[in-house]
Design a protein around this nucleic acid. Structure first.
Lengths: 221, 221
DNA sequence: CCAGCTCCATGACAGCGGTCATAGTGGGTA
DNA sequence: TACCCACTATGACCGCTGTCATGGAGCTGG
């Protein structure tokens, strides 16, 4: 499953992302990608004449686009959109995955950044673009929810940073504790940023970790 | 410099951490570690009979201890200790490093987690222990500052998560923007957790990103 | 029928990885 | 002198990597 009936080229990009987010970039071999995608090895040099670098960059790019589009789906699933609700949905996607299929895989963009930020310029750029494609819709959603324009973008960065960091800790500990902690603690703070000019005077008692609309997930990555 | 006059064994652990945080675990070779530490190659199998796995684990362990001890130094440098001040100091260490020596290197624990969480159990455990050794002193400092006991530990996790995530983004973008954003935004929120029972009703106007005592850093890692 | 194209297949190559085996130091101690 | 020890040195091995070269399907169009 999950390897649906797309063309072999797209399957390879998808498989690359899968393997990268599990083992990292350096530990993921080209032959392994082809095998995982059930694609012929000879297709690698045909579809990706730029070699591994190109394949990795496309995988990172794909992941960035996926994360960005997912934000819209989360928003659509929220009955009453709030910053904390969006953040809880983003976090829940990961807690669900970890609890259902285990802690084997993390975020491919994080893996690419850690492995290639210094060694491969183009991949670093791709990772930066992926983060940007993720940050933008979150920031736009925040402004739509009433967050002042000048705070929307940094707050979106806070959300993504906290999520990525908690992801790391959760994988290391094999425990979703860190993820639930950031969702729980940051929820009221994010809601408090809506109308307040600054200083985060949150509404006195927003539900600590509001349940998102459920069913926001469509398919596991 | 930086490779001071410790024994060759410790130098190799230190060098391993340095190289891992720059290139990742898989891309860091044993021969490279020995060369970087100016240690004889033959010493590797003598000091680390457990091979690369042992060396990596000790490097991660070393990094965890270093991060933990650093918290105490940050606290000592703060004239009036506040959660936001501690967090700003933690973030500033990284913004300073990035601006002074560039974005080449990130956090070695994050790198080990991304590269080995699934493939090497012992390294994953070492990473979890490193996060714990970092989280504990932060949580203790928070309670000392008046944060309710039950929130201290999750809030410490929020701080470390946000820092690690912003670190990733900063390396990808080659810009400290993400780091300053989390410090700026989370500062008032953290201070607001001190006496409030919940809901983060921050003191109305804590300085947004309080300058830490400066001079908290001793030597670059 | 041949040409041209996309795509697939396979083998070879050079390089580097971690690890092992073996031998060699140098300095203490009996 | 003889012995033992911690430590160093070096070379070889095997496996795996990314990449390239070459050639073969299978179809389209003239």
């Amino acid at each position: 499953m999950a390897v649906s009936e797309r063309g072999p080229r797209e399957r390879m990009v998808f498989s690359a992302a899968q393997l990268i987010r599990r083992d990292g970039v350096a530990a993921t071999g080209m032959r392994e990608v082809a095998a995982h995608a059930r694609a012929p090895r000879g297709s690698l040099q045909h579809y990706f004449p730029g070699g591994k670098e190109q394949l990795v960059n496309e995988a990172v790019d794909w992941a960035g686009g996926y994360a960005g589009k997912r934000v819209a789906r989360f928003l659509a699933a929220l009955s009453e959109p709030t910053p904390s609700g969006l953040f809880a949905a983003m976090v829940r996607q990961w807690t669900d995955e970890f609890q259902e299929v285990g802690f084997a895989s993390g975020c491919p963009v994080a893996a690419a950044t850690v492995d290639c930020a210094e060694s491969t310029e183009s991949t670093r750029t791709a990772a930066a673009a992926a983060f940007a494609r993720w940050n933008r819709p979150v920031a736009e959603a925040l402004t739509d929810m009433g967050v002042p324009a000048e705070r929307a973008e940094p707050l979106a960065t806070v959300m993504i940073s906290a999520l990525e960091g908690a992801l790391l800790i959760a994988r290391a500990e094999r425990d979703v504790r860190a993820l639930t902690a950031v969702a729980h603690e940051l929820g009221p703070f994010l809601d408090g940023a809506r109308t307040a000019s600054r200083g985060s005077t949150g509404s006195p008692r927003t539900p600590a970790a509001p349940e998102p609309g459920r069913g926001a997930r469509s398919g596991s990555v």
